[in-house]
Design a protein around this nucleic acid. Sequence first.
RNA 1: GCGCUCGUAGCUCAGCUGGAUAGAGCAUCGGACUUCGAAUCCGAGGGUCGGGAGUUCGAAUCUCUCCGAGCGCGCCA
Length: 597
Amino acid sequence: MVDQASPPHLFADVLARVHAVCGALAKEGGWPAGIDLSRIVVEPPRDPSHGDMATNAAMVLAKEARTKPRDLAEAIAARLRADELIASVDIAGPGFINLALKASVWSDALRTVLRQGDAYGRSAVGAAEKVNVEYVSANPTGPMHVGHCRGAVFGDALASLLSFAGYDVTREYYINDAGAQVDVLARSAFLRYREALGEHIGEMPEGLYPGDYLKPVGKVLAGTFAGTLRDQSESEWLPVVRLVAVNAMMEMIRNDLASLKISQDCFFSERSLIDGDIDQVAATIDFLRAKGDVYEGRLPPPKGGPVEDYEDREQTLFRATAYGDDVDRPLMKSDGSYTYFASDIAYHKNKFDRGFRNLVDVWGADHGGYIKRVQAAIKAVTSGKATLDVKIVQLVKLLRNGEPVKMSKRSGDFVTLREVVDEVGSDAVRFMMLFRKNDAVLDFDLAKVIEQSKDNAVFYVQYGHARGHSVFRNAREVIPGLPEDAEARAAYLADAAVERLTDPAELDLLRRLALYPRMIEAAAVAHEPHRIAFYLYDLASEFHALWTRGRDLPYLRFIINNDADMTKARLALVQGVVSVLASGLAVLGVHAPDEMR
RNA sequence: GCGCUCGUAGCUCAGCUGGAUAGAGCAUCGGACUUCGAAUCCGAGGGUCGGGAGUUCGAAUCUCUCCGAGCGCGCCA
């Protein structure tokens, strides 16, 4: 993993060769200078009968080179035929160039998997650039509920993916500890404090947080302050109680996250923006005002129906419309405090000032309408030097055997994240949250995800990994020296006669393994960790298929009793599958078990 | 009314950022256990990619326009 931080992969290699050929042709053929090669792709053809790889080079370049695609394809093909990796070249359709690679390429690809071990699939596309991924950021007013699961898992997996792809990633949590809601929290905790001192408080008043989880906070307050807070005015005790309560809530949230194997690097307090040496929100507003992006003005009334206490007044506005938003946005509330948006601008500016140019925020679906204004603000505040990609995670519909799980609206009675994790386990939650595009709604069936059957994708993939290990266990009869340790085993198998793997099902698997680094890069660039989950599902599927073929065709079994060399070659393939499954599952944060028991 | 997201097989969803005859799983039907774990696999049927127009060698993918669903629309975060 040390000296192989950026192993080139097969597709990148072939693409480089195609680029070289086109570059040479450009020079000789007198194509326009600076012709754009970036649109050339090398990809696996949809139909395997078209060969191992296909490139669109001729079609993409034909216009600029002032040639017919087919003629250009001929010229490119002629040169590619001389390439050491390429067995044959065909031209098809409007100008596709189909490449069949030499068999040795696939054997080498498998050896690469085995030699690189954990590093296989790692990429340098990130070029060690700093990326800030902000996710969860749930209000510190109570335990996390199921609704938070998806964003949490998505953000965490995306961060791991980016890290695996060579970015320098910071996982961040924005603590909303400055708004009105944490004051409500503090008042609720204060009641629990009085209760802990022996007062009878009765039902929690409407508008406060009724959950039992604040009782321990009340006890802590009573233990620390005895009766002293009770005699103070609210303006005195509130900041004290708030701090204790928020810290207690964050402790709870951290524990909830830990149950999903999530830990973040940076917990950033909203309050610290205004409580520090300088008021960063004020500074940011001044900064924008100096640029002419902040002014005093009036807004038209909201369109979504009558707003209760709407009053037409002059207010401090950010000129969001100058940066692509629909209306200008207020920065100050009528009571003189900052709007959430104002803090948020300062917060994102703070990220920029900490050196981040690539920002990713993971938000829930209900925040979709907020994207434009934040992007506008970031444009203004960083002069367009930073980019923010907002990933919206859609709702999760919680089901049990197809029936919706009832969630009472009465607060304090929701389904917590912890309950779900305790019931089905972290692996099931994580995998299923990622087995879908982030912007599509997701059904999560508590009964189905712990089923041990192929209907359950988590199980299916994990079973693939376990099945590979089962093969290793049995193989020791034929190959007694097969090491137990994964790394040692991979090294041991790396010199197997893998060119003996020639069955179509085996070659499919080799091709799939060779695709892994390319998939990782594409998923990282697109910020789409779900691609890994689907890839792993496909890989497991092909592995299960090959396994079963050995039942009808004994010569295809992994373990051949009288042929240690072939057994070793097959085990090398199994090892390749097992390593890649383990690698992909690790990026997703899902355990790769050696057996399923 | 405006904005964002989505619409792909009966159901749940992929579709590698514009590529070739649009793919899986479930369900339905038909097959395979004397096995390295059948906790699995093989096969069949099933599609106007919501409708229409445009962009070009080429569109599920990009643009426009309708239809439908979800979310949001000063001083909540």
